[in-house]
Design a protein around this nucleic acid. Sequence first.
DNA 1: CGGTATCCGCAACGATACTG
DNA 2: CAGTATCGTTGCGGATACCG
Lengths: 112, 112
Amino acid sequence: MRPTSCDYAANVTLGILEGKWKLLLLCHLRNGTKRFCDFTALIPGLTQKVLTYQLRELETHGLVRRQIYPVIPPKVEYSLTPYGESLIPLMDLMNLWGEKHKERLLESEHIG
Amino acid sequence: MRPTSCDYAANVTLGILEGKWKLLLLCHLRNGTKRFCDFTALIPGLTQKVLTYQLRELETHGLVRRQIYPVIPPKVEYSLTPYGESLIPLMDLMNLWGEKHKERLLESEHIG
DNA sequence: CGGTATCCGCAACGATACTG
DNA sequence: CAGTATCGTTGCGGATACCG
């Protein structure tokens, strides 16, 4: 049943996915476990502070697991939890729609 | 093929859906054409300025059609475009995941 | 290597008042 | 009825420097 009130459940999902880099982080994690420095290498323009912040939020929501190895120098691994994997169909659909949208923009540009 | 670079298409979709009230507006439009004042009545806490802003963005992206009737007092109707309707499967999936997430939160609350 | 600690700018959002 | 106009707040993201 779809809502008539303010607390539309889809908004909860949006709130969790919102964040400039979160989808991209999740996308990279689909390819396997990553270390902190992997992200900064993979994603130019992403600073340590923001990366930390977004990873912490993903962890807080249970989408990402943070595994700390007590070694020197420090080693921390990030991976998708099963719960995080449950977002994969949604991510794929968002990706698909986004691709179509980009095509659409190109067409209207071509015509206009 | 999933991206390794920064321009992840899912982010495009996110950018279009981002906005505190957009999903809710789209959701209401699924039930049929709405007038400006319908939204303010349906959604407590939503001011005219913000409503205007978000509707204009949805219109700009081609998701919503704005039909102006040149009468006094003014009458403006908003409806989903076919392109906007193409988002329905995505909205449903987001809603579904959001519902599951809320259940999950209740459970962990119950346990903790 | 994997973070914190500060400081700052901007855009989204909100409150309120006014208008054709 | 369907908006503008103005002003104020807040929080995300970015820049930079420092730490165990």
